[in-house]
Design a protein around this nucleic acid. Structure first.
Lengths: 135, 135
DNA sequence: TCTGTTCTACGAAGACCCTCGTTGACATCC
DNA sequence: GGATGTCAACGAGGGTCTTCGTAGAACAGA
């Protein structure tokens, strides 16, 4: 098995902090204009900054835009599940020695979950196991 | 609820990519000299680069070193569980809308787990629930 | 002693990230 | 028409991240 540590300079679905801030808004809302995104982010981020970031993201094919009146409306092209999968894999490998169990243990340790949440998480595992058993 | 997007410029336990590469090695091995860390990372990372990163990490109190012969042996000061907790929280909030269930679902979707692994993950949830029920 | 090796230390170069000032287009209101 | 407001576009500035060249100390072997 190759060492995996030599990262290719540009992985897919990997976002910088600000990029992630902005993608996060688009994922939540489905789409957004510059002004809308900026409203969510708060006034401490400049308008032109948000615009620039969206243009950068467009250059990376992470979003696309359509004209809407005089403004542009931006839509995410990268799915949050894909970005999340990559991010989780990275965290799991780099920090949790590749162990999903260690990751899960840390997750439940750092937050209190209600019975209902835990129940739903359990059923997620059930479904995964069923799928496994079918083979 | 405050908007949460205005990140403080330096969160604790937050590492850059290269920093994380190096911390990852120290966490796995428990400690390492520059040469040892570099061996794990592969020859495409320069010796002085690794040294520099370790010095930077030391400046951030993420590692410390002891003399070992003529060389330095570095030890992690930040625990992987702490770094992992921060990273998971970030991923959960920015990408999974704060939902641990969505996170778990993505995790099990992206990798096949054996029955044993799933069983152990289930018991992690059991333990969390017991703790919850005690109150 | 000379030479090669292995180490730390320092600093500078280059890439990347983020921010914002400025410009010009367009629209609206008076 | 002139003032005002909203918009995209561009580019430059300053910061951070990463890399590496170079220097010098310590040591080993011939």
């Amino acid at each position: 098995m190759p060492s995996e540590s030599a990262e290719s300079r540009r992985e897919p679905n990997r976002f910088t902090h600000r990029e992630l801030d902005i993608m996060s808004v688009l994922w939540r809302r489905g789409s957004g204009t510059v002004a809308e995104v900026r409203d969510v982010l708060g006034e401490d981020v400049g308008y032109t900054t948000v615009l620039k970031m969206l243009q950068i993201l467009e250059g990376k094919n992470a979003v696309r835009h359509e004209k809407e009146g005089r403004a542009h409306r931006y839509y995410p092209l990268v799915e949050s599940a894909d970005a999340g999968g990559s991010a989780l894999k990275r965290v799991m490998n780099k920090i949790f020695h590749g162990s999903a169990e260690l990751l899960l243990a840390t997750l439940v340790e750092n937050r209190e979950f209600s019975d209902e949440e835990i129940e739903r998480m359990r059923s997620i595992l059930d479904r995964a196991q069923e799928k496994e058993d079918e083979r």
